[in-house]
Structure formats: structure tokens, C-alpha cells
Design a protein around this nucleic acid. Structure first.
Lengths: 336, 336
DNA sequence: TTGAAAGCGCTAACAG
DNA sequence: CTGTTAGCGCTTTCAA
């Protein structure tokens, strides 16, 4: 089977390779008739244009790179999967890379993608992104963990958290604890601000817990567990009756902490998570959480790279609304 | 910044483009001295060879495709991540694609990868793989869900399951239920056989439960839950005292079923899962599970595609051993 | 609207 | 060991 090339097609169709190329690229200036004949031959021969040759001439690789901190994190794997779907619709494919949250590895990966001449990069920066210099000239859209100075797309963490806190307030909770994300992380800060906003507004002039019930932590399970222990290891009347965690994994860690301390959920403690990963539906009890519109974010990022959507302004990121998914970890507080 | 090409390097180094190319490709026949000078210039100029041009000539894309049913499944996402790591060590990158377990989508994706001229494909076939025709001439290695007739790499499901069942037997369990995977799935069958092997061998001449305590299910959470309900919704003395699930997600679904039925774990029911995904460590109680050596599988698959490891024989797949990870969901059975 | 022809940037003979 | 040179398979002017 001696590999069929564009010339074979041209010969059989009785046209020049130029015309075949024009058919391939849907160039308007080709007669219906010729187009039909050529397309026919192409199908008949099972001809597949060589992408290397193509991209060498046209400078388009139909490849998008995506760099994330950790594919094992369900949030990111869903993101990648959504991006793949969106890209595939346009004939684009995705190269995935994991940075493991190491700025050096991250820089290396971005370099690889650059030299691969991908048409664009979707980046979820490592938490410590300050040293990162993004290559100019290659379209990059930052996702989720926004970086000041680069165009970004994310969900509206701040108002998303408010959704959760307001829900707890409405249930009657007042001593609401908060497990924050790592300091310096942009989304972590946004989430924290959402919490502070909501608490202040509901504040009844300062009747809320003092000192503030905030524990700083990484976004992972173990951190959430430690933070939960910290918030819950105190006398009953100063202990929060509800905790909002900045990630589902944290929330699940916090559930473990409560379990180890013998605190029943939701009877004695309500918990709300953030992210809406599949896992949140599998816990016992099912986790109440604020769900991020991951597919929307991914699709928008792809659309930007494909110029189907304007590039978001550098200091005005595109934000998508979150929604609350009620589970079984929330209930009205017990009377003191 | 007028894009630096191989000729710029050649000119500045006072050599021909051929020599630069040889340096790039680590061809042995270049003097240390010349090699050093050229490398210097390359670095100085920040020259990056154009991968399209390269692969057009050399027929090597340094790209590996990986097609899996669902990236959202933690087992597969870890697989992809491991593959990415292994590939990166050799200067290869990974294109991921999701088939959603649709044979048609799967075929399409494989076609895309073929026309992209990737150097090889790592494939986890859809459960219904029988219609699938793999393109000849492109190295493909099937992993996890082996396909008869294609070279494959997986963990040793059969003996892995025995590990779990033997553990339960040693704890004293006799009525051990089994949640199998979907019928027709090769790994599901292997796991089932592991169960049957172990039960028969421990059988004391047939004293084991009759009829067999087997429930068929998909590998997902909901299926596991239904299967759990099925196995547990019977009178106490005929109910299994332990259940082995063919996947962690099933096991977690089964935990939910037990919870809903008011059956305490591990007091009244022991559960063992299979896979060893991160999630198994986050449940309450922590899941005892049989852990698959995912990184080994991924690395071996990459090694095969890179010719660093012999291609496994078509009817003799490479199998890696699993290991038991003891959690908190297993204990000796209660006296009847 | 279509054909002819000139490369894209690199690798791989083939000489020397 | 190194230079020269002929393309890889396609896209894209430039003419016709």
C-alpha cells in the first residue's frame, strides 16, 4: 500500500495539486463540480493530508497545549476532558502536560509546547506563578488560577462562595468556619473574599464569631483534614456549626476530621465544599457543594484560542457563574 | 525578531546546515569541538528546530496518542499522567483523547491520531471493542482492557483479586460476595475468575455460599450501589459478610448501599475494592483495596512504543502484580 | 477558476 | 568528519 499523496489525488481527478489543496482548505474559488469530483477521489483513495507538511507551510498545527498542575485532581481532569471535546469539534487536538505545581517544570513544559509550535496554550499556572514568564507571540489563556497581567477565564469564585455561605446563613448558621486555599493563590483569595463579603453583610453589626474562624490550607484532602481538626478542636459553644471549604477535597478531609472527633454530619456540623467534582456525590453523606461550570470554562478557553471569541481583556477576566448543588451535609444548626 | 533558522546557526558557527542537523540529532560523527561550538550558538540564538519540518523529513513526530474511555475516571487520569511523565523523559509528548466508551467515537479518534502521524498509540479500548479494527502499520499497545489478538499490558487482575479474597478468607469470611464488571469485558472476566479461583480453592468441598453471591455491574459508582443493594437486601444469615468489588468506585457505591441499609462497615460487612485510586483513601472508613501498579503499566507501554522494550506477544500480554492496601473497611466477621 | 512552480525548514544520502 | 544537495508533502503566489 504505497501511501497516497496529494499528487495521486490530483492525477486521478485530472486537476493540479493546487486545486486539491484548495479543496482541502475549503477555498471558495473552486467550482462545485471540481470540488465534488476531487472530494470523491479523496474519499475513494482514503487520502489523508500529512499534517507536518501542512503545518510547515501554513504555520498552523491544529494542536493546543494544556498545562495543569495535576491531572489526578478531578477538577483538572474534567477540565482537560472538556477542552478535548471542545477542540475536537474544530479539528484540533490537545497535548496535555503536568507541571506538578513546580514552576521550573512548568516553564519547561511551556517551552516544549512553544517549540512544538502549538497554536495556543491553555494554562492553569502553578500556585507559585510569580516567577513565570510567558512567551510572547503565542496565544495563551490562563484558566482558573488567574494571573494578574494575563487574560484569563475562570468561574466567579467570589460570588460562588457567597452562594454557599448565604445558604448556610439561611439555614440559621452563624458560627461559620472557613477553610481557605493557600495564601497567594488568586482563586483562594477570591474565595476568601466571598466568605468575608457574605459574613460582613450578614453581620448584624459584628455578632459573628470573633476571632474569625478561618483556617488556611492547601486545596488537598490532607490539608482539609488538618484544617478541620483545627477548627473543630475546641469547646462546643465556640466551635463552628458549619464549615465552608474552598475545595471539595478539603471538604472531604474535613468530613474525616469531624468523623474522627465524633461530630455527626449534618446533625452537629454542616459542611459545604467547592468545585463540584464527581467525588462530591460519592461521599457519605453526599457533599453539598458549589459547582463550577468546568465545561463552559474549557470551551471558552478553546474558543478564544481559535479566535471564535474575543481575547479577554488583561485586567478583566471572563467569569462564569457557579451554582449550588445541595447534598446531605447541610442542615439547620442544633440549638445551643 | 526574525525567527532564527538552522541556517542562521550554521552561518554563525561557520559550518554547514548538515553539521548543525547532526549536532541536533546527536549523530556521533561530529568532533567534540564543533559540537560544542554549534551547541553554543544554538543556545545563544535560542534556536528551536521546527518540529513540522523535522518530522516531515524524518517521519518521526515525537508524539504519542493515548485514547481512553473517560478521563474523569481517576484510574485513567492517573494512567495518562504516568504516561506523560514517562514520555517526557524521552522528549515525547502525549495527545489525549476520550472515547466515552463509544466504539464509533473511538474509531474516529484513532483515525485522527493515525492521520496525525503519531509514533504510536496507547489504547484502553471501549468495553464494546469487538467491532474495532486497529490500523496496521502504526504501533499500538493496548493496556488494561486487553483485546485478544493485540499485544497488551495490564496488571494481573486475576491474581490481584485473589490477593483480596485470600485476605478476606484469612479474616474468617466465608460468605463473600462479588460485584463483577460488565460482561464481555476482559479485565472484568479476569477479576471474576480470580474470585472463582480463590473461592474454589478455599471451598472445603463446597461449603461456600450457594447460589453464588455474584452481582454483575458496570465499573461505576451507581452500578456498585445497585449491586450492593442487591447483595445486601436479604436475610441476615444469607447475606454476605464481605463483598469484593471489581473497582473502587463500585466499592464506594456499595458502601453507600450498606449505609442506606444501616449495615455498619466493617462491623457487619467488610468491603474490598480494586484499583487503588486516590479516592480510596478519602472514604470513611478508608477503603481496603487491591492496588494496580498504574505507573508501571504506563511506563511499560511507553517503553514498548519507543522500542525500549520488546513488543509483548499477541497472545501473551505483560502482566504486573497488584498489591493489597489495607484500609478500614475490613475486619473479621461477626459471629452468626 | 485553475495550473505551474517556488519553496517552507529540515534530514539524509553522497561526495570529498 | 563535514559540505552539498535533493527533496519530504503540501500551500501559495503568479500567470494564464
Amino acid at each position: 500500500m504505497p501511501k497516497v499523496g496529494i499528487r495521486d489525488v490530483a492525477k486521478l481527478a485530472g486537476v493540479s495539486t493546487g486545486t486539491v489543496s484548495r479543496v482541502l482548505n475549503e477555498h471558495p474559488s473552486v467550482t462545485q463540480e471540481v470540488r465534488a469530483r476531487v472530494s470523491g477521489i479523496i474519499k475513494e483513495l482514503g487520502y489523508m493530508p500529512d499534517p507536518s507538511a501542512r503545518s510547515m507551510r501554513s504555520k498552523v498545527s491544529r494542536l493546543i497545549g494544556i498545562v495543569i498542575p495535576d491531572l489526578t485532581n478531578p477538577f483538572f481532569s474534567e477540565l482537560v476532558q472538556s477542552a478535548e471535546q471542545a477542540a475536537a469539534k474544530h479539528g484540533y487536538n490537545i497535548i496535555v502536560m503536568t507541571s506538578f505545581d513546580h514552576p521550573a517544570k512548568e516553564a519547561d513544559r511551556i517551552g516544549q509546547l512553544t517549540s512544538r509550535k502549538v497554536d495556543g496554550i491553555i494554562l492553569v499556572p502553578s500556585n507559585d506563578f510569580h516567577t513565570l514568564k510567558l512567551p510572547k507571540g503565542l496565544p495563551i489563556v490562563v484558566i482558573d488560577r488567574l494571573m494578574p497581567g494575563y487574560s484569563g477565564i475562570a468561574s466567579d469564585h467570589r460570588s460562588g462562595v457567597r452562594l454557599g455561605i448565604d445558604y448556610l446563613l439561611k439555614l440559621g448558621h452563624r458560627r461559620i468556619g472557613f477553610i481557605s486555599g493557600p495564601e497567594g493563590s488568586v482563586p483562594a483569595n477570591d474565595r476568601l473574599r466571598g466568605y468575608l463579603d457574605a459574613m460582613k453583610q450578614a453581620g448584624d453589626g459584628g455578632r459573628l464569631a470573633e476571632p474569625p474562624l478561618i483556617a488556611e490550607a492547601g486545596f488537598d484532602y490532607e490539608s482539609g483534614r488538618s484544617a478541620g481538626n483545627y477548627l473543630l478542636a475546641r469547646a462546643r459553644h465556640e466551635r463552628p456549626t458549619a464549615i465552608f471549604a474552598s475545595s471539595d477535597q478539603q471538604a472531604i478531609g474535613c468530613m474525616r476530621a469531624a468523623y474522627d472527633l465524633g461530630i455527626p454530619i449534618p446533625a452537629a456540623l454542616s459542611i459545604v465544599g467547592f468545585d463540584g467534582i464527581p467525588l462530591s456525590n460519592m461521599t457519605i453523606p453526599r457533599l453539598t457543594t458549589v459547582k463550577q461550570p468546568i465545561p463552559k470554562i474549557a470551551a471558552a478557553a478553546v474558543a478564544v484560542l481559535l479566535n471564535e471569541r474575543p481575547v479577554p481583556d488583561v485586567d478583566d477576566p471572563v467569569l462564569f457563574a457557579c451554582e449550588l448543588a445541595e447534598g446531605e451535609t447541610t442542615a439547620a444548626p442544633q440549638p445551643d
